[in-house]
Amino acid sequence: MFFFELFQQLPVKILTVALLIILIVYFIRKSIKLFFDKTSFLDEKREETLIHFSNQVTKVLGLAFFIIYLLSHFFDLEKFVAGSVVLAGALALILQHIIRDYIMGLTYLFERQIHHGDDVIINGNRQGKIEEISMRHLKIRQYDGYLYTVSYSNITELQNGNRGGRRVNESLVLHYRQNPEDAFKVMEEVAQACNEKYGEYLLKDENGVPVESFKFNQITQLNVDYRGHQYSLSGLVKEADFVEAGKKVRFELAIAAYKNDLMMAESLNTSH
Rank of each mutant, 00 (worst) to 15 (best):
M1N: 04
F2M: 03
F4P: 05
E5F: 12
E5C: 13
E5P: 09
F7L: 05
Q9I: 14
Q9W: 11
I14H: 07
L15Y: 01
T16S: 06
V17A: 02
A18K: 01
L19Y: 07
L20G: 04
L20K: 01
L23D: 08
L23Q: 07
V25G: 05
V25D: 10
Y26E: 00
F27I: 08
I28E: 14
I28P: 02
S31W: 05
I32D: 04
L34R: 12
L34I: 09
F36S: 08
D37C: 02
K38S: 11
R46W: 04
E47P: 13
E47Y: 05
L50R: 03
F53M: 06
V57K: 01
G62L: 04
L63Y: 06
A64C: 09
A64I: 12
L70P: 04
H73N: 10
F74S: 10
F75E: 10
F80K: 10
G83H: 02
G83Q: 08
L87D: 09
A90Y: 05
A92S: 13
L95G: 12
H97S: 15
I103H: 01
G105R: 00
L106G: 11
L106D: 08
L109S: 09
L109D: 11
F110K: 06
F110G: 03
E111M: 09
Q113E: 07
G124W: 00
G124M: 06
N125Y: 02
N125R: 06
Q127M: 09
G128M: 09
G128R: 01
I130E: 08
E131Q: 14
E131F: 11
E131K: 14
E132S: 14
E132P: 11
I133M: 01
M135T: 08
M135C: 00
R136M: 09
H137L: 14
H137C: 13
R141I: 14
D144Y: 07
Y146V: 14
T149M: 11
S151Y: 15
S153Q: 10
E157C: 02
Q159W: 07
Q159K: 14
N160P: 10
R163Q: 14
S171V: 06
Y176W: 13
R177Q: 07
Q178C: 00
N179E: 11
A183H: 00
K185A: 15
E189Y: 02
E189M: 05
Q192S: 13
Q192D: 13
N195Y: 03
E196Q: 09
K197R: 14
Y198G: 01
K204R: 11
V211G: 06
E212D: 08
E212S: 10
F216Q: 11
N217C: 10
N217P: 00
N223F: 02
V224L: 07
Y226I: 15
H229C: 08
L233T: 00
L233M: 05
G235I: 11
L236D: 03
L236I: 03
V237L: 05
V237D: 01
K238S: 04
E239W: 03
F242T: 09
F242K: 05
V243L: 10
A245S: 03
K248G: 07
E252N: 03
L253G: 09
A254M: 13
A256E: 02
A256Q: 01
A257N: 03
N260H: 12
D261H: 12
D261V: 07
D261P: 03
D261N: 14
S267W: 00
L268D: 07
N269Y: 12
S271Q: 12
